[in-house]
């Protein structure tokens, strides 16, 4: 119970810090851009472009929320260390793992809040164009939120190993390039020898499978059914396992770090 209170307090700190830094203003500006883009499309007329507008909506949501997740998470620890605010935190009766977990939780809360804000704005913009919403849209939002939790965990882990700038760069490469890397592995797998094939398998399981959390293709196009519950359960399990692995990795580095 005490642990939960600690994690909650740390997460609240991240949220307040984010509000203080006016990060959510960035989200508001991005949301304003969404409205402007929707207005521009409306100017050209969107008769027949409903699928395109929906596709654009999910693309923009994915892009902006990932940027938010990476930028929020990868600076959390390095900034605490740089500004020396870590000392008073660690002087309290909390473990280093608690600190990491609380920070990650805070980053997830901030990212989810930003994502839901953008979802509301995008939904509003889409509704003005009479775009129909199907049940899969709800699954898209839930799966995306799980995916963003993984992005936060990976970025936080990067932040414990390198400078915030390097962590952000690498996190962006992974967030936007991992699906391309995996496609590359699949294409190269058939032509590889057995040893390389094992290496490809190892790389594949190590890379974060962000594309699995993106139901945007199904949500934006017409007539796709919702995914079965076992898939959502798998995504949840994957999120828990991968986030757990990333937090453990961060803790392994952070617990021996001299501050």
């Amino acid at each position: 119970m005490r642990k939960i209170r600690v994690w909650k307090a740390l997460a609240r700190g991240v949220l307040l810090e984010s509000l203080r830094r006016k990060d959510l203003w960035v989200v508001a500006i991005l949301g304003f851009l969404i409205i402007c883009a929707a207005g521009a499309l409306g100017f050209f007329g969107i008769n027949g472009l409903q699928a395109f507008v929906k596709d654009l909506g999910v693309t923009v949501l994915g892009l902006f929320s990932t940027i938010m997740a990476v930028l929020t998470s990868c600076r959390l620890l390095p900034e605490e260390i740089k500004q020396r605010t870590l000392y008073p935190l660690l002087s309290r009766p909390i473990s280093r793992f608690d600190l990491l977990f609380g920070k990650w939780l805070g980053a997830v809360v901030v990212t989810w809040a930003a994502f839901l804000l953008l979802v509301a704005l995008t939904a509003g913009a889409l509704m003005t164009f009479n775009v129909r919403f199907e049940p899969i849209m709800l699954q898209y939002v839930v799966a995306k939120m799980m995916g963003l939790a993984v992005v936060c965990a990976v970025s936080l882990a990067m932040g414990t190993f390198m400078t915030p700038q390097a962590a952000a760069t690498l996190s962006f490469i992974l967030a936007f390039g991992s699906s391309m890397l995996i496609r590359g592995l699949i294409m190269a797998y058939d032509a590889s020898n057995p040893y390389m094939a094992w290496i490809f398998k190892l790389i594949n399981v190590s890379l974060p499978q962000y594309s699995l959390f993106d139901l945007g293709g199904r949500a934006a196009n017409i007539g796709w059914s919702p995914v079965p519950p076992w898939v959502m359960a798998f995504l949840f399990t994957y999120m828990v396992v991968y986030c757990g692995a990333m937090l453990t990795l961060s803790w392994a580095k952070f617990r021996r770090q001299t501050i």
Binding site: S211, L212, R218, P228
Partner: peptide, 10 residues
């Protein structure tokens, strides 16, 4: 992973 991707992707 492939099975899940074929379910979540269009």
């Amino acid at each position: 992973f492939g099975d899940v991707e074929r379910r979540v992707a269009s």
